[in-house]
Write a protein that binds this DNA or RNA. Structure first.
Lengths: 190, 190
DNA sequence: GAGGTTGCTTGACAAAAATCAAGAAATTTA
DNA sequence: TAAATTTCTTGATTTTTGTCAAGCAACCTC
């Protein structure tokens, strides 16, 4: 569970060995094969995972097309945050794009963390707030930037993804068609 | 402070008179005149307000134009959530569009709530998570809907706003120009 | 109530992005 | 490795949205 422990240390500033063990002890290792679903629309999301390795796509089907909301990569948490916290049916599908290895905690065990780890509530709050902030930035980019500007901005921050997943998913995530994406890409590569 | 108390009861399920008083007792009444700023870009947001009456616009200036992020109305909380929680300089301007009456709590007093009210941490978490969920929905709409569809969806949920604030602000919030907004509007009214 | 300001609409045009269709390239599968 | 599938690219075209410019309407304000 080293990657998870490192994450907890660096992102949550949890350093006490006891706390680290309390937390990581509740996670179980899970693997998914390419194409497997971690979650499907209308299911209840009763788990929170930390991605040890691999890539997953979070998307939603609307009418005849699929809208990719995000791609989760190694070293980040994975859940349907709204569904997990409010226990409402999920609106998302989450599917493995590669072989995936996860550390997973059940909702029940997750709830124990509040009593086991002193400052858990604060950390949880910070985590959710961080998710909010990221989304706020993304929303702002959509309100203020063109497709090309969004492409450039995303490319600068996530270069690696561009040769790890089908580009159409990145296109969708950036709110454009694969064709538009391809044309911008060509222009950028000249 | 009745509107605030009602909000706490219905949205946060706080019913104990003691708790209600503990909380609302820390808020002070503040009024703003039309055009006054509640917050400016690069300032630290050290307050959380509840809008008793009036309307405020949250926006950001980019190059030569202004991007409206949201319009806050009567009966909702107002803050730069990211800035307030992480104590980072704000990227937003928040300006009164009308006479505004607020109940305001300082960051210092806000922090006391954790010790004064038993389940405060849970409620705070729920509140932030709610903000996240709303933003997630909005983001999804931008990824999956055209300008016209966004107009219709917003109009259905916020009819009242359309004759309360300059329409250009709503246009910006929906990610389109005033001209496009005007054309869609005309089409919808036929 | 005349003049100024601000906000809204309209038209003509330009640019951005979507759609459709075909084909090339890459990847997977057998 | 050949065939099948999936993904990406390209061109032609349409649709959507933005830009610019002008005019109109509402509303302050003096």
């Amino acid at each position: 569970m080293t990657p998870l422990v490192q994450y907890l240390e660096s992102h949550f500033d949890i350093t006490a060995p006891d706390d680290l063990q309390q937390i990581s002890g509740l996670f179980k290792t899970v693997t998914l094969k390419k194409g497997d679903y971690w979650l499907k629309t209308d299911q209840y999301c009763r788990q929170l995972s930390f991605v040890k390795s691999g890539l997953l796509r979070i998307y939603r089907s609307v009418e005849d097309k699929e809208v990719t909301q995000w791609i989760s990569a190694e070293g980040s948490f994975l859940t349907d945050l709204s569904g997990f916290l409010f226990q409402t049916p999920s609106r998302w599908n989450i599917q493995a794009l590669t072989e995936v290895s996860l550390y997973t905690i059940s909702q029940t065990d997750y709830q124990k963390l509040g009593t086991l780890v002193e400052k858990w509530h604060t950390l949880e709050k910070q985590f959710i707030a961080k998710c909010f902030t990221m989304l706020e930035n993304r929303m702002f980019q959509h309100l203020s930037m063109s497709a090309e500007e969004r492409y450039i901005s995303f490319f600068e921050q996530h270069k690696a993804l561009f040769h790890q997943v089908p580009l159409q998913y990145i296109a969708s995530m950036l709110g454009m068609t694969p064709e538009t994406f391809s044309r911008i890409r060509k222009k950028q590569m000249l």
